[in-house]
Design a protein around this nucleic acid. Structure first.
Lengths: 212, 212
DNA sequence: TAGATTGTTAATCGATTAACAATC
DNA sequence: TAGATTGTTAATCGATTAACAATC
């Protein structure tokens, strides 16, 4: 079983490698990738072994082939649709943020309980009333959901998404949601993160070991 | 040295406790708080010891006094100002999200290099050109920064904020920033989080142990 | 008192780091 | 070959979990 941490780092390596590829770089060593991604060389080498592509002691890793290996590991073969619940300020910003960024992982449907916010297209994403969720998600084979509703509505949104067949949730609401054990939840809690930063800024220390 | 994890959990406990207080609940046991916050009772008890307030075996924790202890631990005495760099879709959504939410931790200044986006007020926050950052931050004694610029501009934004005296950064850009060791950085990388969720949704497993 | 909960120590678990032989 | 890097195993570190005496 691959840990969530490794998957997250692979996602970061890919972005760094994309930048290198754009610059015409053909080979890269683990310590270079480590410095750019903010991890250690040993972590990088161990993570890259997971995707099943080996480097060479003389040339390091070939950028092109490594990117292809990561792509095969991370991406769904035919692309993956994502649903978003909660078309408020944050929801709309996230629709804009992901619009056209990664064709393989697109937000293809958004939902809101407010009738005034649905039945239109925002940043290329169709907006539907909550009642149509099961139907739309089944029809588009969507298995990933993003929750951008207020805290009080988060649990309900999560349950609706899970009922509609979603197996992964990205939760922006400042509240933990309870889901069946086979559903993966990532919490992206901006309030907690900001309070953490504020605490350590006030203490004048980093809360982690130095990053050299 | 308190770990960033503990500080983050305290922030969550506070929100759960606020909800309980609003419901008129006066006492709470560690296992109740644990269930609501999504952690274990032992974690809750250990974390609460950090803030220096002891519970009682018979009544558990008093909600009012516990909230006060957490507040004293987490919050800056006179309130803490926050600066935001990058007034795009995401930046504006974050200004709206935090507006009026926590008087003690307010975004009081926003910056952008685009002259069209500055010299106005968005969700109660004054917007300035980048050139005025050092001056504004010093005058308002701001030590916390939020980065919502594109990936390519993140390092520059981080350096400008650090030069202006910031000791903590909340980084939304999908790129690691390098900072001096005494600056605390929290990365809030939506792209990585979404890719993690998509990966585990596709595998049909949670990537963590069951949450019971 | 009896009993559930708290505070605290010991054991477990997992991830990171260090060390080193294998490789080109 | 010499040398830097890779892949892999062992040691370290930190956090979580389990166990239990102390408490009201």
């Amino acid at each position: 079983m691959i840990s969530a941490r490794v998957v997250g780092r692979l996602s970061l390596y890919r972005r760094v490698l994309n930048a290198l590829q754009a610059d015409g770089v053909q080979n890269v060593y683990s310590h270079q990738l480590a410095a750019m991604a903010g991890f250690t060389a040993v972590q990088v080498r161990r993570d890259l072994m997971v995707v099943g592509y080996s480097g060479s002691p003389t040339h390091g890793y070939e950028v092109d082939r490594l990117l292809e290996s990561i792509r095969q590991f991370l991406d769904a073969p035919g692309g993956q649709g994502v649903a978003l619940v909660g078309i408020g300020n944050l929801g709309k910003a996230i629709l804009a943020y992901f619009a056209g960024r990664r064709p393989n992982l697109r937000i293809v449907a958004a939902f809101d309980k407010d009738p005034c916010k649905v039945n239109r297209v925002i940043h290329g994403c169709h907006c539907y009333p909550m009642e149509q969720m099961a139907e739309v998600l089944k029809q588009a084979d969507i298995r990933v959901g993003i929750i951008t509703v207020p805290a009080a509505a988060a649990q309900g949104a999560a349950e609706a998404l899970v009922r509609a067949g979603v197996h992964g949730l990205l939760n922006f609401a400042p509240m933990k949601v309870r889901v069946p054990p086979n559903v993966h939840v990532e919490d992206l809690d901006m309030t907690t993160s900001l309070e953490k930063v504020a605490y350590f800024a006030r203490q004048g220390v980093s809360g982690k070991e130095d990053r050299k």
